[in-house]
Every structure is written in C-alpha cells, then in structure tokens.
Design a protein around this nucleic acid. Structure first.
Length: 483
RNA sequence: GCCCCCAUCGUCCAGAGGCCUAGGACGCCGCCCUUUCAAGGCGGAAACGGGGAUUCGAAUUCCCCUGGGGGCACCA
C-alpha cells in the first residue's frame, strides 16, 4: 500500500487536513506500506513558504512521519508540484496526441455566459464541448497564430464512471455531469486535477484517502488515469469535519489551525487519539488507546460515512487523561518552559526543586498544559496578585481574620516545616477556633496563594517555605486595619 | 438551478433482521470522597427524523419525504 497526503500550502494546516493525514498515516502503518508527503503547490500565487513550514511542523508535532516526499526525498524526484511542471506538460501533450484531450479557444467571458444560461435553463452548467469538434489542423493553426487556448480532456460521451469507494461503496457519475474539464491553463500550467493525478500515477499511489469534497472530482481523476493508460487507485473519501453548529468546520468556529492546539496546551498524543475517533472507532468500548494499538486495529473500511462534529470539550477531557498519564519528568519538561515564560525569567536551582516537588500535584488537576503557570505562580513571585473574586468570597468573611491570626501564630512557632507538621498546626488551629476546614483553611489559601483555587494547601505552604508564608499572612492581616 | 453524499442520546462512536426494555465515551444533573480545584467512585436524565413497503419479526433491507453536508472555475 502506498498512500499520500498532499496539502496545498495555501493556509495553515487545519484540523480537518490533520485528520486526513492521520488516516493516511494509519492506513500505511497498519499495512506496512508507505506514507508519502507531497506538496500540491501548483498555484504559486497563493502558496507561501510560511504555510509550507507550518504543514511540516504540524505533521511532525503529531508524529506522523513520512517515508517518502518533501524534505525526505525518495525515488520520484522533488515531490513538489511546482518543480514538476514539465512532466505535467509532457503528459498533457501525450493525451493530446492520442486525442484524449483537445485545445479550447473559448474565452472566459464566453464560458461564463454560457454557464449562466445553462443554469438558468436547468441544464448542467459544465462546458458544452464546443471546441471538441475543431479539426486538428484548425486547432494547430489558431494556436500557431498565437490565440490563447486551454487544453481540455475529452470526456467519453455517452458514458459513466463507476468506482468502489472504500468508505462509501459503489459510487457512479454519469458523464452528463462531468464536463470536458481543463488540464492545462492558457499559460501552460497544469490544473490541480492534472497535476495531482499525474503524481498519483507516477508515484505508484495505490490508495487515495482524502476529503469528501473531492468525491465529485474523482471521475475526472479516474478519466485522466485511464487516458494515461494506468490503473486507477482505490479511493476512500472521508466525510468532512463540522463545527458545533453542524456547518463545515471553518474559521468562524474559532481557531481551526492545528498550531492553535499546540499552543493551546494540547498534547499531540491526545489530539491524535481524539481525532482518530472522529469517524472511526477502536472496537470494544475503548476510547483511550495508544498509537501502537491504533495502528494495529485501524482499517479504512471501518470508517464511518457521516460527517462528525469536532467537539472541543471531549478533546480537552482527553488531554487531561493524557496529561495525568505523563511521567513526572515528562510533565516537568513539558510545563517548565511555560512556567518560565509566564514569569518572564528562568527558574533558579532552588526554584526548580520547588517546582519539581509541587508538579505532581498540579499535574492531577490540569486539562491543558497552559494551566500550569497559574497554579504555581504564587511560588515564584514576590508581589502576589489576589484574585478579586476569591478575596471577596473568603477574606472578607467574619471568621477569616481570627483564622489568619491563629494560623500565623501556630505556623510561626513551628519547629519543622513539613506538610505533616503544617497540617497538624492548622488542624489544631481549627479546633481551637471551632471552625470547619472550609471556613478556617480557605482564608489561609487565599492569603498565601492569592486564589481560592490552588494545589493542596499544606503541600503548597511547605513548598512556599515559612518566611514567605508568614509574610503573606501578615500582609493580609495588615490589610484588615487599613479597611 | 443541477449532480452527489449522509441520517442512532446535545456531541463522538457501538449496533451489519430476533442477543435492543438500544450499549460505551464526552458533556449535563445528583450523591459519595474532600481544605479549594481537580481526579476518583456510585447513580440519573438523554437517541433509532417522518411516512410507506418487505418480513412471523426492522435501528438494521427497499422506496418516498424531510433535514444536513459536499460539489458544479483557466482554486486546490
């Protein structure tokens, strides 16, 4: 099996394309075949190097390695269509020689008029084949005279193209609805249909796995393949991804660029796992599984036909699962840079030790890597910023001042600064004041961490150390008098 | 306008004639655990779009309707 992912660098890699790439990759890995990456950049004007890099970065981030193609090389040359123009022209010439294609001199304006008219009359809007009957000699003469022309495929008429789609079953298109489409533009450059098909043939692609938006173009590709004297590949058309409103996933649903997910604190493993579930299932009732398990079970023929809505909530949940599953060192390696970026400075040795100690506790209560900084910020800043809502909810309450005073007294007398000792001291404080944990401990939490949401209190205090803990308690106590 | 595709809880999937009083996951709602937030445990609400047909029997087959999606370029 040889499959390919062939993005055109006209935009950032988005989640829909990422899913197509994943399914191609899974199919190849499952079958022990090759996954090929090609750049469909025939449209020079719209492509850009930035987008091209983004695609490669995205695939690498997801761990979808390719065996052949762009940057990787292989037996077929460049794998960038912009560098294969002569080959497409060569094929085009051959097709014309065999009268499988013909020159068309109709102007864009004429074409437009006729299309409109056809539509108004309820006929298929495709090209009417006017230039198809031009004698070869006349054709040549007009071209020699410098008249602009495109090359069109002579679609067999009457006729019909039937193929067996792996996910959709038998699909048929009557040629009444397949126009004599353009292969070569008047400037001699190939259209997508030509370039893509020639590459698929040249590269020996056996399975074309792509989005459903190309389903109705498939007859064109099959016709070109046949005209080249080659055997068409097997096709598998994936249903499209939808937004929450059931419409095709697009920018108006928020950021659909893959790199937004990377920057948003998602783990590639989680993303891959989640996306694999859109239109496919593991069997059993499992929803979380490893990449190896996925590869082992994946089968194109198990893919579902109906479109799937991309559900951020479930992705976020799954990301939490994967975060909790990370080894301690791995978790630290992935979050430390975020913490440092948040602070705007690197952590020193002691601070790193502190982070290492608290990290397992924050790991349990995160769904996105990007949540880490906020959870540990109180450990590394001099000036604590208090969350206003927490302040009003907790510090302003009647019993809070007494609790803070007592807590400060007890903690100030503490011999050893350990989680256990801190817990004992504070529990004794609760007993003394006859306060429940909520009333007595929350003020301490807010005073010391700045928020009513934090890692576990006693561990947090231990990590923060006695000096800063006492200072913060005192600062809040001072504040009461100021009010 | 024309062609094509699709249709099970709000969402993602399971279900390939009787195993379905339709199963799992996310989310949601309760309860438990608990110093907060999470995590975890237990429980709950929640779906076969409608109508015909075939059959002893249909979520599963067929037809129509409706709804949704995709495509119809010298874009990819």
């Amino acid at each position: 099996m040889r499959v390919r992912f062939a993005p055109s660098p006209t935009g950032y890699l988005h989640v829909g394309s990422a899913r197509t790439a994943l399914f191609n990759w899974l199919a190849a890995r499952h079958a022990g075949g090759e996954f090929i990456l090609r750049s469909d950049d025939t449209d020079q004007a719209r492509g850009s190097d930035e987008y091209y890099r983004d695609v490669l970065d995205g695939l690498r981030w997801l761990g979808l390695d390719w065996d052949e193609g762009v940057e990787e090389g292989g037996p077929h040359g460049s794998y960038r269509q912009s560098e294969r123009l002569e080959r497409y022209q060569e094929v085009a010439e051959q097709l014309r020689d065999r009268t499988a294609a013909y020159l068309c001199f109709c102007s864009p304006e004429e074409l437009d008029d006729r299309r409109r008219q056809a539509q108004a009359e309820g006929r298929p809007p495709g090209y009417d084949g006017r230039c198809r009957t031009l004698a070869g000699a006349e054709s040549q003469a007009r071209r020699a005279a410098g008249e602009a022309a495109v090359l069109r495929l002579a679609v067999p008429r009457p006729g019909e193209t039937v193929f067996d789609d792996v996910v959709r079953g038998e699909v048929r298109f009557g040629h009444d609805h397949v126009e004599d489409f353009v292969l070569l533009r008047s400037d001699g450059t190939p259209t997508y249909h030509l370039a893509s098909t020639v590459d698929d043939v040249d590269y020996g692609i056996t399975h074309v796995v792509r989005g459903e938006d190309l389903l109705s173009s498939t007859p064109k590709h099959i016709l070109i393949t046949l005209a080249m004297g080659a055997e068409p590949p097997i096709y598998a058309h994936l249903s499209l991804l939808m937004g929450p409103d059931g419409k095709k996933l697009s920018k108006r649903h928020g950021d659909t660029a893959l790199n937004a997910y990377r920057e948003g604190g998602f783990l590639p493993e989680a993303f891959v796992n989640y996306v694999a579930l859109l239109g496919w299932n593991f069997g059993d009732d499992e929803t979380v599984f490893t990449r190896a398990e996925m590869v082992e079970r994946f089968d194109l023929s198990d893919i579902q036909k109906n479109p799937a809505v991309f559900d951020n909530e479930k992705l976020i949940w799954m990301n939490g699962v994967y975060i909790r599953d990370l080894g301690a060192d791995e978790f630290i390696a992935r979050t430390l840079p975020l913490v440092e970026a948040d602070l705007g400075r690197p952590l020193d040795e002691d601070e790193r030790a502190t982070y290492r100690a608290i990290a397992p506790l924050v790991q349990e209560r995160m769904k996105l890597l990007t949540e880490a900084p906020a959870q540990v910020r109180f450990l590394f800043v001099e000036e604590l910023e208090y969350d206003p809502a927490s302040w009003h909810k907790v510090i302003v309450k009647p019993d809070s001042r007494a609790a803070l005073e007592a807590a400060k007294a007890r903690l100030g007398d503490l011999g050893e600064w350990t989680t256990d000792a801190i817990e004992q001291a504070l529990r004794a404080m609760l007993e003394e004041l006859e306060l429940n944990a909520r009333k007595g401990l929350q003020p301490v939490r807010v005073a010391v961490t700045g928020s009513s949401v934090s890692p576990p209190l006693f561990e947090s205090l231990e990590a923060l150390g006695p000096e800063r803990t006492l200072v913060r308690l005192q600062e809040v106590l001072d504040g009461y008098d100021g009010q």
